[in-house]
Design a binder for these strands. Structure first.
Lengths: 188, 188
DNA sequence: GTCTATATCGAGATAGAC
DNA sequence: GTCTATCTCGATATAGAC
């Protein structure tokens, strides 16, 4: 892996584990095995590194979601596949966790990818739900926008509950919970 | 307000705004107006202050929730009141945000109140849902444990979405979403 | 109880040699 | 491009006077 690549990946991991405030340039150098001078040659500083790392996480998150949304199947099947996809629950969401980082939210450049990723996700999920409703899979009273927000929130909140409990179980239970509620809206 | 009180309150606010890693003893002294020597006289250090502050937040969170759960009304009415209660959405949850703090989760003493608060909340909500189901308010297929997890997750995830968007709207939408799904399980 | 002085270490860079 | 030296602050205390 190239020096540049190792810097971005190490920053990504550290932001994921410790957040922006909790990540130091020195820690990035140690994890990547890249020297001080080299790091500052490739990047302007901590925020510059973070921008590259966040961009990559956002891209990956969208690709993972899109793969499920674009797959064949009913709306519920695709949403179920999205929610139940394999993931390291206790690690949490690399983008969602940044939301709690005051220095990230205070910097427009770092904040934009966070905002855009969730806006895209919400819109895409609402689209899948609207499509399902229009095809007659759901009863006509289902609200695609509100339901999409609830689904995304269950994911993000599921991570919180899992970390609080030190176990992936609350996450799985929360996902089961929304899917159970959603199943009741399927037209028979 | 007493010196001790000001220290705890200032720590509580700072943990809420900036997390444990992002809060320094100096910042606590400045916000509280308490001097260095005085602070270290009353508390052993940063983690000791945090323990007192977290304990207070946890207590408050439970009291706020219990007030809604113990009120008169149907299960859905009480859960609606809990979810729609007035709150400063963009500030987020003082306990949930700690979940993203590696130094909090690594310290058993700081972690315990976080874990216990969510365990209590989940159990209490599941109890309200089970009671509603047993009274015939819901259809018998409703799963109280999974639904309770989903409801708590929507709250915690709603904060994440709101902060990402810089607006309280996604939170309200997510709450509307679960309540809309839950409403469909009410026996007519 | 509260204050000021002092100490150690890491954060976050910049400078210039190689 | 990479390395080492150096710099300035702030984080997090401890010590001892008042």
């Amino acid at each position: 892996m190239s020096t540049l690549e190792r810097l971005i990946e190490s920053t990504r991991e550290l932001l994921w584990e410790r957040g922006y405030v909790g990540t130091s340039p020195k820690a990035i150098q140690q994890r990547s095995g890249v020297g001080q001078g080299s790091m500052y040659h490739h990047f302007g500083g901590k925020s510059d590194l973070a921008l590259a790392a966040i961009g990559r996480s956002a891209e990956e998150m969208r690709a993972e979601a899109e793969a499920r949304f674009a797959a064949p199947g009913t709306a519920v099947e695709r949403i179920t596949a999205y929610l139940r996809r394999e993931r390291d629950v206790l690690r949490g969401c690399p983008i969602g966790r940044l939301t709690q980082d005051p220095d990230v939210m205070a910097d427009p450049a770092l904040r934009r990818p966070v905002e855009e990723t969730f806006a895209w996700l919400h819109g895409r999920l609402a689209g899948v739900l609207a499509e399902g409703r229009d095809r007659g899979e759901f009863d006509a009273g289902l609200d695609p926008l509100a339901t999409a927000s609830a689904v995304v929130a269950v994911l993000q909140g599921g991570y919180v509950l899992a970390r609080a409990a030190g176990s992936a179980e609350p996450f799985a239970q929360a996902v089961d919970g929304v899917l159970g509620l959603l199943a009741a809206r399927i037209r028979t």
